[in-house]
Design a protein around this nucleic acid. Structure first.
Lengths: 206, 206, 206, 206
DNA sequence: TATTAAGCGAGACGGTACGTCGGGTCTTAGG
DNA sequence: CCTAAGACCCGACGTACCGTCTCGCTTAATA
């Protein structure tokens, strides 16, 4: 079913303008960078009056956020993570592709821009967490839950935390450029982290 | 010996102005927030001409960075992490205090501001990694190395990665506000992560 | 009839701002002098954004010029010179009042300022000649033409030149302060100059 | 006698710097125009510290003025006006050459610049009148006096005024560009003005 | 079917800050 | 003590955008 026709908001709202704005925002931020992204520029590129932006979005970050929403709501982003039964291999696959995406200049700048807005706007951060991050996280947790049920992860493991442990270091390295963001890094990260998440007979200590 | 021969750069440079600028920058960003932090404002607060800032710093981020440098070079930030022999307890202590600091509004805004600048300026990111992050990371690695030598960590463990695993999720949660940043979270994070870093007899999976 | 269809330029232009700017410019130049007259100051005094000035005027001089235009277009500056039939007396009257005006500090500074801008901007000079000077000159020439028709001036006299001869020395003395600018000077000037402009029976030299 | 070695002022003063500054000022004003003439630029062009200018001159105009002084004190500017016995011809010759000079772009900008400074600085105006204008005027008056003694000018004529009548309109037309400044204009000016200065038997009136 | 009222593109407006230029003062080092 | 050099505080430059505010025009929903 999924009727889903969101965002009437007002029946008079121009869908063409909305699309033009989101597209212009995403393209512009990739071309000129976050620092030089301006509402004025977005309006000009979209062929739209500034007021049309101010009427429907509270901030530049909100526009950017919606631009991302439109993107990820796009084709078919919603399928789950691969599940071959081999958790480590599956995770490596996913994290490697995350690395590739983060290194792709087409996404790097826009994502940094969105991140910046989120950094300084708790409301936007909440939106992000709820609308973009949570769905993704749910997919990740599903894969981990599957592994947990297969006895490949500790039964008392907090899956939210597990997701943090796997993706947090990756995102952090990307954001701060604290080191090269390679597929090799993704692999090692998965291996080392998983080691602590698996059921264990006993440690050396205790 | 070599005490004190600081920042000559130019023999004519006014140390008083430099200090005033860095102080003003740090205070202002805490008061008005990143979005409203302006070079004009810093100059006014510092009682300094704008040109004096433009003369010595290439960007607003660079000023902010130096302000942090001056702070951490300050009193005695350089002692190592606690080492009681109990790695888990020591790490919990440190991460908990990190949590407290990140939650402190006096540091939250300034650090977000600096992070934002780093996000969009690779040169600044490199400076950050080298001048601020690396020394801190070295202290953390020292503590882990000590544990490793005590047989509390796997001998083949990459300590750089280990630091990432411990601090990455924390910073990520702070930056993106993807969840409450509590001492409880720090504890769980340490426990779970350490589980994978310790020497292990064997897994369930062979 | 054609009353009043003034300055459309753009239907969106704010007439209130325009007036405020011209008034502020004229007042300010009188108060602070030409050297310290700034667009910034005019905008501030007028309660207007700087851009509103830059949008409609190409230079500080153009603003000043318009301020003068607005003034002279004001009340009823347009009536002709007095014509009692006694040319010498009428001219003395007019030149004396010119002297008084040039000595009036309320007009001295503004007129020096405008003159300075005209000095260095040929386009502005052309505007001045056409819009301010020409109308005034026409009135002066009318009075001389009347005298000419009454047989009080040589019939072959170039009236443009005659106006130059009468007002040129006065303005020059005012501008360069090459000597005291008194009503006595105006009188002598008129007397001496007129002597050469009248029809003459014969000279000493044949 | 006229020993004349002016301007010691201080025995330590560098004559080389002084010359370099005056030369730089005159050249620069011709190249970049009055509006963009800066003390900074003069100092740079002269290879001199700004302070050296501020130490010895009270204003930009004073530098410019001295630059002109140096020029006119130069070769042999001081000989009198031609005196062939034919006053009208002699005056036409002189005014025509004035016209040529005022139209020469090498002198036009610098003289406009100096005039501007004089316009707004009474002290400078006094200097100008005394040091540059008065000597020139004396030469002009000498020629007129000669004519007066030859019976070519009225005996009661104020020679100062006569000079004003002849040169005032010319300068005024040059400064304000109120019309083309041609040799033809100079001729007509001389002819018409002289007509009023000559001894007269009687007018039509009275 | 006409009337209205909202949304729209456009862009002027009062502002703030930008990054630069030059003003005039002061300090340093060298002759 | 004068000089070249140049840092300093300050104020203004002319530009870019901010977010708000009309302007007419188009267009969809109501009357």
């Amino acid at each position: 079913m999924t009727t889903q026709q969101r965002r009437p908001s007002s029946s008079r709202r121009s869908e063409a303008s909305r699309q033009a704005i989101l597209t212009a925002a995403f393209e512009l931020v990739g071309e000129v960078g976050y620092a030089k992204l301006s509402i004025e520029g977005i309006a000009a590129r979209a062929g739209v009056g500034k007021q049309t932006i101010y009427r429907w979005w509270p901030s530049k970050g909100a526009v950017l956020f919606d631009a991302f929403l439109a993107l990820s709501a796009g084709p078919d982003e919603q399928q789950g993570l691969p599940d071959t039964g081999d958790l480590e291999a599956d995770l490596k696959l996913v994290l490697r592709s995350t690395v590739v995406e983060l290194n792709d200049p087409r996404y790097d700048e826009p994502m940094r821009a969105l991140t910046t807005e989120i950094l300084h706007d708790p409301a936007l951060a909440a939106s992000y967490t709820e609308r973009l991050d949570a769905p993704m996280k749910e997919l990740k947790k599903q894969r981990l839950r599957s592994a947990q049920q297969a006895g490949q992860l500790r039964t008392d493991l907090d899956l939210d935390l597990a997701v943090d442990l796997l993706w947090g270091p990756l995102l952090n390295r990307w954001l701060l450029r604290s080191g090269p963001l390679t597929e090799q890094y993704a692999d090692t990260l998965v291996e080392t982290t998983l080691a602590g998440l698996r059921p264990q007979r006993r440690d050396v200590e205790a």
